[in-house]
């Protein structure tokens, strides 16, 4: 019985992690605003074009709108800006090339340390009982 509960808890926690990682957090009902939040304003410090009111940010928003009504995909639109301004125009680095590191490191390190941590926890608990 005791083991069962433990197992259940573990599965529950684990499925939480999995589902959380798989699901797309940034899904928004409005595609335009979603894209605005993925493009940085090139003349502002640390603001996306959605947040900025600089002329260039407004113009970039218009371009996004036009391309959306032209039927371009999100990736195509982001690529357009990336080609012109470099990767730094994207508010989060793409999961490719050397930038994979930024995404993979937390995932690997957190799961690795969680395993070490839970092994230690179990060992410590066993040693006592």
């Amino acid at each position: 019985m005791f083991k069962k509960i433990k197992l259940n808890l573990f599965i529950l926690v684990f499925s939480f992690i999995l589902i959380g990682c798989i699901s797309d957090v940034d899904e928004n009902n409005n595609r335009n605003y979603d894209l605005y939040s993925k493009i940085m304003c090139p003349v502002c410090d640390g603001q996306t074009i959605g947040e900025s009111q600089a002329s260039i940010a407004n113009d970039m928003k218009n371009i996004v709108d036009v391309y959306i009504s032209d039927g371009k995909t999100d990736d195509e639109i982001l690529k357009y800006f990336e080609d012109r301004y470099g990767t730094e125009i994207l508010s989060a680095p793409p999961n490719s090339g050397t930038n994979t590191i930024v995404w993979a490191t937390p995932l690997v390190l957190i799961s690795l340390s969680f395993i070490i941590f839970s092994v230690w926890l179990k060992k410590s608990a066993k040693g006592n009982s």
């Binding site: 926690v13 939480f16 959380g20 957090v25 940034d26 125009i89 989060a92 680095p93 930038n99 937390p106």
Partner: peptide, 29 residues
Amino acid sequence: NEVFYNETVTVGAPYYNAVNGPVILLLLF
């Protein structure tokens, strides 16, 4: 990235939402 690859990138809200979001959820749990 700047030091090793001489490439400028931005790590902004979408990154933190995607990576920290699930961890915050676990914390709530």
